[in-house]
Design a binder for these strands. Structure first.
Lengths: 241, 241
DNA sequence: AGCGAGATGTGATGTTTATCACACCTGAAT
DNA sequence: ATTCAGGTGTGATAAACATCACATCTCGCT
């Protein structure tokens, strides 16, 4: 498969840590102790205490909620460079989602106590940290909007755009999604069934909005995709997986 | 209507500011300038810059998103004692929801710049503020879970429980919802139509899970309501409107 | 080369939810 | 007391989505 057009990475991938300055981020790094997690293992469970922050050095992590019936809803995908975790008021606050390693991961773990100490000492860092939390909140809000407003078609369209922002490279006026997603994975991201996702994707293909090349999805007509979910053009650090 | 049982307020109502100590909250109050807003007016619009924090001294506010087709989704209800607003990384970040006064309101407004200054100076306050943001994030996540997981019936059940936590008083083993909600208002909270909500509420009445008394809803069987949305027993400061 | 697990594609059918249409009810304002 | 706007109740119908049941297609592994 020959690539004839200049290839530009649309997004570094993860890096929701961009609100931190280099110097301040180093201070955070000094608090981390490293841990390796194998693909498929849980980093934390819903219902457990939340008292840690995690920096994903390498690998990929998803935040999921599973119902008793075995349904899964995937809230976030984190990539190398992302920070995640839930901050509790005190130790009795429980996680509402689980974090699961999608690939082997290398993590930096920060204790909430250590985090609080350094935020207390360092006002700059505290403000940057607050901005990071603001991003996370806005991400969740826009995800809720995308899932609720324009049906499963809208949810799928917005998710494809989010995938493009997270994992896409431009090739001429198309976008190649460099990571493969199964129908089931996409279904879990939008709270739909595999079959529904499959039918919708085939419809998009028929309409020449997307195409398949070697099993990876190409976005052929971003504008029509945006129209389906009434895209508001959120910044890429929010419009992501 | 005679009340024969001891009446206990289940929740003060608003007060998502409970992560702040009195002394620190006073420091926040010193930054506020007051503004009055009339019922029905917008406090801010989606698409506007977000650079303010709002403290609701009295009245009620809802955060809404409206689609071009005229559908409305209501994300939060705020009451006296609540803090709200969206924090942006820098001035080019836009609100994703609008804030609208549901009654005449008295607001204390804090400029983001002033907030940053005081957080920078005061580590305790920064940590408490971070915890407040954590609450907001967890609220949004649980709301997303409730809306997505168990259909419209589940969304309605969880919303009734949230209303009970925000506006309910116990009367024996029933809970009286002290505020009236129209079918349309509930529909906007769960992303459904008025008709669907009406039919579901009548079904709950038939099943003796709820009852009407003078037009206000009484929750007669909280346990069965919890079963419908597979309630996980989140703390009341998160399980609210 | 061929086996087998996991992924995809698709019809038939059922459930859930929205849409449309209209009757009725209630309460505040004239 | 009448009017009228906004809320409620309910049937008929349609659209969206899930479920079930298979057939088929990958692709890594022996």
């Amino acid at each position: 498969m020959k690539i004839t057009c200049p290839v530009t990475m649309m997004n570094k991938g993860g890096y929701n840590t961009q609100s931190f300055t280099k110097e301040n981020f180093i201070k955070l790094e000094e608090l981390m102790y490293e841990q390796q997690v194998k693909r498929g293992e849980k980093i934390y469970w819903e219902g457990n205490n939340c008292s840690h922050l995690y920096y994903l050095k390498s690998g990929a992590v998803k935040l999921t909620k599973s119902s008793d019936e075995g349904k899964d809803l995937v809230l976030y995908h984190f990539q190398a460079g992302d920070l995640f975790g839930e901050i509790g008021d005190d130790s009795h606050i429980l996680n509402s989602f689980s974090a699961e390693a999608m690939t082997d991961c290398s993590l930096g773990i920060i204790q909430q106590k250590d985090l609080e100490t350094i935020l207390w000492q360092n006002g700059d860092l505290a403000i940057e940290f607050m901005k990071w939390m603001g991003y996370m909140q806005r991400f969740t809000q826009t995800k809720l909007r995308d899932l609720m407003f324009f049906g499963k078609h809208g949810a799928l369209a917005s998710t494809l755009i989010r995938i493009a922002n997270s994992y896409g490279i431009e090739e001429g006026n198309t976008i190649r999604l460099t990571t493969k997603f199964t129908n089931t994975e996409i279904a879990d991201l939008i709270g739909a069934t595999r079959e529904t996702v499959n039918r919708m994707l085939n419809q998009l293909k028929k309409d020449e909005i997307i195409a398949y090349e070697n099993g990876t999805i190409m976005i052929e007509d971003l504008e029509r995709l945006k129209a389906i979910c009434h895209c508001e053009g959120c910044p890429k650090n929010i419009c992501r997986l």
